[in-house]
Design a protein around this nucleic acid. Structure first.
Lengths: 214, 214
DNA sequence: TTGCATTTATTAACACTGTTAAGTAAATTT
DNA sequence: AAATTTACTTAACAGTGTTAATAAATGCAA
């Protein structure tokens, strides 16, 4: 009974091809400009065929959102071997920021846009955002490790993780939406010139704050 | 020569009426659902008339963005009389968070969406986002006051302001885009139940961090 | 007051968008 | 060989932002 399997394979192939085309358009032209019709043209199928493989556009958005998390995890995977948890926490923060700079469109899809989360809520209400949880769990464990090494004495682990995430996300989010750019000129204290270093400096200010807790 | 003035008044009136209609739709149905045609129907004009008063849709987005900043400043104005700068800083943070909870759609337009900033860049490249700068200046001055009272000893003022903004924006942004909701369940340490208190608790964790600097 | 010019608003249209219902052709099963 | 399922397409709906061309209202000079 290999026919059914061959068909299933073919189906998976086409689904992957659609996503590949969507990704290509998304990376080069952004999410809004990535229309169903353009994806269809890219793979030389009719637009309605897309709907046989993806429920709607938010479904594709979520699939791309998952791709983005794959890239982020790839970056973080190298940090698993950093033994000192505080060093790891710092490196995670830098890695997160660098990811946002390197892949602003993916970052937007993963942490700024509503569409992927809307899809999750609408079509899989039972599942709890596995991609996000997986990364957040890594953060929780790192913070836990920091506590074991004498950092953040009285602080709640989850709150500390949440705070660390909020800091770097706040920075990345304001950077990507170009809110920073319009405020950065004010902060031209000779030192701060490049926008990226403003991100780094603010993040380092946060780290200095944390180090006080040793 | 009062005719020209009367016309100008009439023109301003209609421009205001358009914005009022846009605001009404925007608040009740969100930005995406606020179409030019709907705004036009609301004020009983043809859709193209809108373009005689606003360049394009991002122009309207920016006008609403300004309205939002008016609301935020209104909230902050009451804090000008809080003498202790650290108390003021804390209150500003809480006020900012509460604003995001009370007016999520405005918050989105002000700090998450790209459209208003795009309009600013495209049509007024010389101006430097006056709304944002005005609020940020208030923050800078408050941080400066904190330093004068012995807080944040060695820290750079701008970096400290940036960090404070990033923390609260990170929290609000993740809250509004409903990224928190899908992670919050994991943090159900008996204590943390409501999502809003998770925001408050994380913010307080940040404040505890800051207080160490006294 | 009449005729002309300017301002203001409208109609019609372009080029798109996501999405669905209905129809067709090919592959598979009976 | 006939019937049925699967895979895909065509046509269409209902909307979007935006612009060019046109009509109506207004102000001003003769």
């Amino acid at each position: 009974m290999g026919i059914k399997e061959r068909k299933e394979r073919h189906r998976e192939d086409l689904k992957a091809k659609i996503l590949e085309a969507a990704k290509k358009l998304f990376v080069t032209e952004g999410y809004e400009a990535t229309s169903i019709r353009k994806i269809a043209a890219e793979i030389e199928f009719s637009p309605t065929t897309i709907y046989l493989y993806y429920k709607d556009k938010t479904d594709i958005a979520y699939a791309l959102h998952q791709e983005g998390f794959g890239l982020l995890r790839e970056r973080f995977s190298a940090l698993a071997y950093v033994d000192d948890p505080f060093e790891r926490l710092k490196a995670m923060g830098r890695g997160y920021i660098q990811f946002a700079i390197d892949h602003p469109d993916f970052y937007e899809l993963m942490f700024i846009m509503k569409e992927p989360m809307q899809y999750l809520q609408a079509h899989h209400p039972e599942e709890e955002w596995p991609e996000g949880e997986r990364v957040f769990d890594g953060l929780i464990q790192t913070v836990e490790g920091c506590k074991a090494h004498g950092y953040f004495g009285s602080m709640n682990t989850e709150e500390m993780a949440m705070l660390s995430w909020s800091v770097v996300h706040g920075l990345c989010s304001l950077h990507i939406t170009s809110h920073f750019k319009h405020i950065a000129e004010k902060c031209s204290d000779v030192v701060i010139v490049k926008q990226d270093t403003l991100l780094e400096n603010t993040f380092q200010a946060y780290l200095r704050l944390l180090e006080r807790f040793k």
